[in-house]
Amino acid sequence: MEERIEHYLQHKYPDRDNIKVTDLHRIHGGASRQTFRFKLSSSQDGRVSERNLILRRDPEGSLIDTERALEYSAYRSFFNTDVPVPEALFLEEDLKWLDRPFFIMEAIDDCEVASPFGISPYGEVRQKIGEQFWTILGHICGTDLDKTELREVVETPELDACWCKELDYWESVIDEDELEPNPLLRAAIRHMRRNPPAPAQRLSVVHGDYRTGNFLYDGEGTIRSILDWEMAHIGDPLEDLGWAMDGLWAYDDPDQPAGMISTNEAISLWEKASGCMVDAKSFMWWRMFACVKGLGIWISSAKEYQGGDNLDPILASAGWLTIGRHNKVLLGLLRADGGAL
């Protein structure tokens, strides 16, 4: 594979010589794309340079059906802004290079990624990370849509259609991929349709998977990069907030969503950075939606694995271990919202 990447990069960098790919290895996790890290060395005008890069290639089957162009556009939309992201370099959809579409971006070195399912994943730096985490999410919501490349590749819904568009989509995913009926999930969807949220207060970029485990941070507790934008879209600002505070992440500590800082502090930082307000009733709807969407993803992963389309054991794990826990989170929210007895 190194040789094929070298051929591709030679094609993209015609002015460079001695292009060499070394230290190529696959990074665990992220079943929606195969992620590889490698070192690129090359020379130009007699000067030798090295750079660590990331290659994200479509798998044969994945958790999430998304277009890599969308993710690539999202990275480009936020490069050199208040939202830290790596520089996206090349998007390639011609299958002749690596058999499947892929894109290449800058690697962010000397950083960690926490497990989304760990207890207290950020330890002593949780306060510092929490303050950045919720503020950056506010910046994403507050970004001027007209200044993003993302707007060119995704649909822009009406303010009062954001919730319906998302719920319709994820219910259709569940309809298509469900291998066993889930009475709780179906009851939740019916309840949510009977009790929709208020129209979005504004349209914003929605990361789509903004959560514990989807960002890189360094040893000082500085968030260096927000990752995994493959579900980015335009929608209600509360959607990402509901997803990021979902009880699945960081072991469902209701006082410390995402295993960082208190809920009140998180919302305050988010409101300040985004210029949006959290309406409690609508936010409860988006928190239930986070469970529906999550269950949709886990249901799809179970189907992919069961059908042999993707044999990465992380999909079996998602189908087995995560559905049960997410059902429990959803049941708790439904009870709190009067949707379950």
């Binding site: 399912f117 709780l184 087995w320 559905i323 049960g324 379950a340 007895l341």
Partner: peptide
């Protein structure tokens, strides 16, 4: 009956949780 169904669903949710 609705209450009975919710009791059933709640019990089933608990039964199907797989602990690591």
């Amino acid at each position: 009956l609705n209450k009975s169904i919710w009791q059933l669903i709640s019990a089933d949710v608990e039964r199907r949780i797989i602990e690591l």
